[in-house]
Simulated assay, not measured.
Amino acid sequence: MNKDRSVLTAAQWVRLSPLLPGQESSPGTTAKDTRLFVEAVLWRARCGVSWRDLPAERFGPWHTVYARFRRWRKAGVWPKVLAQVQNATGLHRLMVDSTAVRAHQVAGSAEKKTAPSGRRSVAAAVGSPPNST
């Protein structure tokens, strides 16, 4: 994040903006505040909040941002932008460090399912002793 609390630096925006729809050279309507919209999407992704939790005083009404995001998703803008950014920066793979990935608190405490009574295991059906060591 920059000193002015924007998500993108000026250099990043210069590289990213030609890839986005709504430019003056694009057919159709010229978009208003495209940089602010992209920063809202990036802010939401970075913070992991729902659309309704976007700060309206900074990014405007959440539903406006969401509707534009959805239009761009349907038009296939995001995969194209991602592909261009990956090619430009050499980011062809993304690795996730498992020490930073946490499971939900109840993920490991689920009750084990047992076979209903009257059903035999495959080992018992074949006649081998279960787990003999």
Rank of each mutant, 00 (worst) to 15 (best):
M1Q: 09
S6V: 01
T9A: 04
T9L: 04
Q12V: 00
V14P: 02
V14C: 08
V14W: 07
S26M: 04
P27A: 08
G28Y: 02
G28W: 03
T30N: 08
A31E: 05
D33N: 14
T34E: 01
A40I: 04
V41N: 00
R44N: 05
G48I: 04
V49R: 12
S50P: 03
D53W: 07
L54G: 01
P55Y: 02
R58M: 00
R58E: 00
G60H: 01
H63V: 10
T64E: 02
V65T: 08
V65D: 01
R68P: 00
F69G: 04
F69T: 08
F69D: 08
R73F: 06
P79M: 07
Q84L: 03
Q84G: 05
N87A: 15
T89Q: 11
G90F: 05
H92R: 15
H92Y: 12
H92P: 02
R93Q: 15
L94M: 15
V96D: 06
S98P: 10
S98Y: 08
T99S: 13
V101A: 11
A103L: 15
H104R: 14
Q105Y: 09
V106T: 14
V106S: 14
A107P: 06
S109M: 11
S109L: 13
A110T: 11
K112A: 14
K113R: 14
T114L: 11
T114R: 13
T114Y: 11
G118Q: 03
R119E: 07
R120Q: 14
R120I: 02
S121C: 09
A123P: 01
A123Y: 06
A124T: 10
A125M: 10
P129E: 12
N131Y: 14
N131I: 08
